[in-house]
Design a protein around this nucleic acid. Structure first.
Lengths: 338, 338
DNA sequence: TTGTAGGCGTTATCAA
DNA sequence: TTGATAACGCCTACAA
């Protein structure tokens, strides 16, 4: 709120307000002399355009709403960085809302709409969000990381099926045949697709689907602990464990330690996302990595494209390829396993 | 951009625009019948006030600019959550900029000013930022986590000296007398204060300051590796290592592993910030924890207070107390250590 | 209690 | 090329 207005600049330069506006925006052609006067006046006064007024007039704010989930996972942090960076590069500011609860998401949706944001990037928390649905009728919305399947929208996602397939392929190559999956029971597409990818891969390798090897729980550390305990207690033969999130992996690791089960000698382990702890663990964990930064950038770019050619182009679904990082938590299964 | 304006609502309700405004804001007294008509019309039309226009008129936007550093550390993520939450609770939206480079910080500062933000929360990257300094003359600014010492401003910080003191106290109690410090050479107050805290604690316990035990480098994983290697190569007796950040700790851990130095049998270790990997490490690491969420919340609250009573109250410096979490990476020093 | 008029700072339209 | 004039959507002041 410097208080210096365009009119102040115009007066000092001895021109009309519209002329000053034209000079400062570099639009139309203005007399060289006047131009210099205006520029001088502007810099002398330390003029800073009021984007509120400009936006009101232009009916476009240059603000993007970003509705993130309240996660401290590195993935979501880096995703956000990609979004901010791509925004900055294209002259857009990002207002962020962070929440897991639907009512708060609604609050943010309202706030975003009130601020006349030009578009919204959302990491959906549930299958469908009426507030977002309503807004999406008026302004472009891009989903990232997850997809609320109820409505078809622009989305930037990981190729989740392939991610799990890579993990299973790796294990099968090592000789594993009893591969367990720890997954989150939340109804988000990432989980559904990862489970599906696991099953596909099993089929591909001619391995049977065994319910006892598929453990669903919260995708939290506690959920990982519970499902790992359940798996071990069940007594079914198992030589490798796959998790859909590193939260569950953390839980699994703790239970394995308590029970003094050696990784990878007795049990191989694969996680999702490459984070510091996964690297520094003993042993370092083999994981599937997501290109978080690129996904964030792409989401912003897709959104900006949708804003510009607001043509009714039908929803684009962009899938990013995961990458397998092999470390020491995976090895051939023990001899005596079956 | 629903397109529905206050005037639309007023027309449909058969009243004047100001009357509709009064009803919707619940200000002044209006006839009960008219009131209902307006509310009905508003809900039928799905009216959503345009905050741009309102802000332009009221000269206050309800937007806070948050200039964060490009860190994926859990501390900064949780800090941001505290800021967003406190903003939402008080009806403020937060536009975030994330960057470590001064020129980008400048860009964001400009953007924030252009949006007429009501205030700014900044995690400073350098000792002083001219762009922020300039803005701070017009609108309230609160520093959080770090402090750019050149100018005195409202700030919400950790009691860094005390943090290191707690760590040293703990080690001394265990019997350590050769305590090394790995710190970042960047000129940010957190580092300076933590080094100072380490030295104070040594003095308090009658231990000598030994330059060979104070290793400065980047506060990165690489910096941690380099300084740890340097420390071990120097051959000076050392029984415990303290780091000012977990990035450096991660580097230290890797070097210790490579050299097969056992923690805590041969060397005790204390880090900064409680993160998942620190808990899941073998052994789990003793750390000093920062109340990140509370610090974020407090920063927002302090800023909002400064905005409201824009009285020239002189800068408040709020220090949060750290907490020592004792795990298994610290134990009495080996017998043969001097 | 309600409506009219004006203005927040900017850009778009149209004459000159 | 330049400058009046109006408008974006809202709120405040004043008059009715």
């Amino acid at each position: 709120m410097t208080g210096v207005t365009l009119t102040d600049v115009a007066q000092r330069a001895g021109v009309s307000t519209p002329t000053a506006s034209r000079v400062l925006r570099g639009v139309a052609t203005v007399d060289q002399q006047l131009k210099e006067k205006v520029l001088l006046a502007a810099s002398e006064l330390g003029y800073q355009p009021n984007r509120l007024a400009r936006s009101l007039r232009e009916r476009r704010t240059g603000i993007i709403g970003f509705l993130n989930v309240g996660s401290t996972a590195k993935f979501h942090t880096v995703l956000a960085q990609g979004i901010y960076d791509a925004g900055l590069e294209n002259g857009y500011a990002v207002v962020t809302g962070m929440s897991d609860t639907t009512d708060r998401q609604q609050s943010y949706a309202q706030i975003f709409a009130g601020f006349q944001v030009d578009g919204i990037i959302v990491v959906p928390t549930s299958q469908s969000d009426p507030a977002i649905d309503r807004i999406a009728k008026h302004i472009p919305v891009v989903e990232v990381d997850r997809s609320a399947s109820s409505v078809s929208r622009h989305s930037v996602l990981l190729d989740n099926q392939h991610a799990m397939e890579m993990a299973v392929d790796h294990l099968v190559e090592l000789g594993h045949r009893h591969i367990a999956l720890l997954y989150g029971v939340e109804q988000v597409n990432t989980e559904l697709e990862r489970v599906e990818g696991y099953l596909c891969a099993l089929r591909k390798h001619g391995l049977p689907r065994r319910e006892a090897l598929m453990l669903g729980d919260d995708f939290s550390e506690a959920g990982g602990m519970r499902s790992t305990a359940k798996l071990l207690d069940s007594g079914v033969p198992v030589t490798a464990v796959l998790t859909t999130t590193n939260e569950m992996l953390a839980g699994a690791v703790q239970v394995l330690r308590e029970r003094e089960i050696n990784v990878p000698e007795q049990l191989s382990l694969i996680g999702m996302d490459d984070t510091r702890w996964v690297r520094l663990m003993t042993p370092p964990v083999t994981v599937v990595e997501q290109p978080a930064y690129d996904m964030g950038k792409k989401a912003m770019e897709l959104l900006l494209a949708a804003i510009d050619e607001k043509a009714g182009q039908h929803p684009a679904e962009i899938r990013f390829a995961p990458r397998l990082i092999v470390r020491s938590s995976t090895s051939p299964p023990p001899f005596d396993s079956l």
